[in-house]
Design a protein around this nucleic acid. Structure first.
Lengths: 207, 207
DNA sequence: CGAGTGATTGACTTAGATCAATGACCGTGG
DNA sequence: CCACGGTCATTGATCTAAGTCAATCACTCG
């Protein structure tokens, strides 16, 4: 959970913090947009309610995540935002941000950069989720997150969190890592995972 | 596949079409960026090659998808782009686009809008992929894509494509739909799926 | 009219989800 | 200072839904 860094690091865009109790609504579909938010702590879910009255979760934002970016370019919110846990959020007021974009193209550019990176990240994650085998998913993740040496992967946060990011149950992840370690495909030291034989890892696949 | 609409509908940003043969490289990691591309037909994959020489696919772009948006803000490409099939792409030259952004904030804004929407879309898809049960995944999808009446879902493309989007095998999708239809949870007419009893769909879950 | 593809269904297998239990750690309040 | 409640890490046993392989039928396209 690296402490959430500000969305607009370079400049003082008008922003305001707000605390939410669990279950509290941040905004609702149809309300006029006042800006985008960054979740500083806790979890906030975006959801839509269909005609039948049941809620469909679109996304659950955790610490550091931004929500309602698109609201900067729209006059009303298109989904509801509700705090799933007690949470703290920072509001970036729409007019302030847009005015700053117009005034200062560099800020607009850095925001676009941020969005573009997010798109890439998300696509990468999607591709990961398309891999069905837990082992291959882990391999893919390790390959993508290897440090400069191509072998060492620093695990940020807990393994449970990693499991969630990989779309696996934590048990499945533990087992997969254990099996890979048993086969000397990886080694584990404290918070790091070392990929051994990054080469030639396609054969010898008996459990 | 709905004909790909131009990325910059409003104005004539310098763009150029290019045809790729299957297997042909569009760009490689480390090359200087010349711009972003939109895939007009065929499929282009983004991939990284790890130190061991094996390729990890980050994303496969189909007709209408944009790739390398982030390259507009970076001086080098960070992954390889290779045509998986014969393909046609449109290049939006970096300088032209960036200059236009600076000159015309509205264009920048519309591009940001596009990126923001993409982020939201991707997050929504991610949330979908977090659902493990095929049936619930289909339900979630239907709820999200219901038309104005809250019940009718127009299926764009083939069911196989839908299966891919849902992250299911086509067999699994066929079976799930068949089962839901058998239980009168949905009805199917030509290309549409009608959600019956959108309400009260949580009980009665025997196969 | 055959080749290619989508849609569909059957049979079988298995990987991963689920349920469950244990040990290590950690902070905290009494 | 230590016992207790909570969470993470780990492993075992079991079950089932979804993947895999395979076959069939309907269509469409040259």
């Amino acid at each position: 959970m690296a402490g959430p860094h500000a969305i607009f690091p370079n400049l003082r865009v008008r922003s305001r913090e707000r605390d939410l109790a669990a279950g509290q609504t941040l905004f609702r579909t149809g309300q006029r947009t006042i800006g985008a938010y960054q979740v500083l702590s806790g979890r906030v879910r975006l959801a839509r309610v269909d005609r039948s009255g049941r809620e469909t979760v679109l996304y659950t934002a955790g610490s550091g995540d931004m929500i309602a970016e698109a609201s900067l370019f729209s006059s009303i919110y298109h989904c509801d935002a509700i705090a799933s846990t007690a949470a703290k959020v920072r509001l970036y007021a729409k007019e302030g941000v847009l005015a700053e974009f117009k005034r200062n193209p560099e800020v607009a550019k850095s925001f676009m950069t941020r969005l573009a990176r997010q798109v890439m990240d998300l696509r990468t994650r999607m591709e990961l989720r398309n891999i069905h085998s837990a082992r291959d998913r882990v391999r893919h993740y390790l390959a993508l997150h290897a440090g400069a040496d191509g072998a060492t992967v620093a695990v940020k946060g807990t393994l449970k969190e990693l499991a969630a990011e990989l779309g696996l149950t934590h048990e499945a992840l533990y087992r997969t890592l254990a099996r890979m370690a048993a086969k000397a495909e990886i080694k584990r030291l404290d918070g790091r995972i070392i990929r051994m034989r990054a080469l030639a890892a396609s054969e010898a696949d008996r459990s």
